[in-house]
């Protein structure tokens, strides 16, 4: 009996050792915009609320905590949908975010050339996420989550491809540890999308014999292969497309040829801007080469001049 009472007493005492917060006392964070300067300043947007909370602190989390006081609710970042950062201390901030166990690793990332906090404030509640999603669906950009970007930044080249918001223009860009190395044009950004992600249900504008037409891509998949070719390394991007031209009076062969040409041009533009222009391995070329045991012992920078790019675009209707 004494044992049971003692055990009950211990358990009752330990009941106090719990951090309970009722659901109604929690604010669920949807978007965070964070600017690094001398202090970290954040703009926090919650689910179902128009008001944007602001706060600043030494770290991103202390800044979020300070924003919390204005709202009176405990801010819960586990459902963070979008993180907007300015180009300073990108890697450090992402590392902290990943190490903090309450942030979803699948949270999307946008880098702004201006102030991230102001960007969050200037868009409506879901507007920024919607722009990101719709651009990604149209094959204009590729959405990247914080874990994937951090993984890329930890690679040897220390660069990652991320959607960059330049003014009101959202395209892909290449970022380093704490800077934006370059912003891609719309065409280059589209090319990068073809190179890195599968496309679904998009309409590609093509030109067949001087006549504008739309090529409907139902589904596409991309595969990268590396092959030693003398002192060169042959990188082949194989893109398999299932699609057809919408216009009925254009032949299947001609439209497919035009689509393949268009995609090749877009891809080569993206490659020349990122790999050749910025020395950035945003396609995972190095991993691909290493897995084939080619150029072992050479650094990424030594490999770049040896690379030759080929595109194999296969279209089936």
């Amino acid at each position: 009996m004494i044992k049971k009472l003692a055990l009950t007493a211990v358990m009752l005492l330990l009941c106090g050792c719990s951090h309970k917060t009722e659901v109604r006392d929690k604010g669920f964070v949807r978007t965070i915009g964070c600017d690094s300067g001398e202090m970290q300043s954040v703009a926090v947007r919650l689910y179902g609320q128009e008001e944007v909370l602001s706060g600043s602190g030494d770290t991103i989390f202390s800044a979020v905590e300070n924003a919390e006081t204005a709202q009176g609710k405990t801010l819960f970042t586990g459902h963070l949908e979008l993180l907007v950062l300015n180009p300073a201390e990108i890697k450090d901030k992402l590392s902290v975010m990943i190490k903090n166990n309450r942030i979803s690793p699948s949270c999307s990332l946008i880098i702004t050339t201006g102030s991230a906090a102001d960007t969050v404030k200037s868009y409506e509640e879901e507007e920024l996420s919607d722009i990101l999603d719709s651009s990604s669906r149209k094959g204009k950009i590729v959405t990247r989550n914080i874990s994937a970007v951090l993984n890329d930044l930890l690679e040897d080249d220390s660069m990652a491809a991320v959607p960059v918001l330049d003014g009101k223009n959202l395209t892909m860009g290449v970022v380093g540890y704490d800077s934006v190395i370059g912003v891609l044009s719309e065409e280059e950004s589209e090319g990068l999308s073809w190179l890195t992600a599968s496309q679904h249900d998009i309409y590609l504008p093509i030109n067949v014999n001087g006549k504008a037409a739309s090529f409907h891509v139902r589904k596409s998949s991309t595969r990268l292969t590396a092959e030693a070719d003398g002192d060169k390394i042959k990188i082949t991007t194989e893109i398999k497309i299932n699609g057809s031209c919408i216009e009925e009076n254009i032949s299947e062969t001609e439209s497919s040829k035009a689509a393949a040409e268009k995609i090749s041009v877009l891809c080569s533009k993206a490659i020349s801007k990122t790999v050749t222009g910025m020395n950035a391995d945003v396609l995972g070329i190095e991993k691909c080469i290493r897995s084939e045991n080619i150029a072992s012992g050479q650094s990424w920078k030594e490999i770049i001049p040896e690379l030759e790019f080929y595109y194999s675009i296969k279209i089936a209707s």
Binding site: R24, K26, F28, G78, S104
Partner: peptide
């Protein structure tokens, strides 16, 4: 609801939060 809201997807969580408001 109290400790691990990350185990729900956003839509479900918002329904729950709204009803408990």
């Amino acid at each position: 609801a109290m400790h691990h809201p990350e185990l729900l997807n956003s839509t479900l969580l918002l329904i729950l939060a709204e009803s408990e408001q």
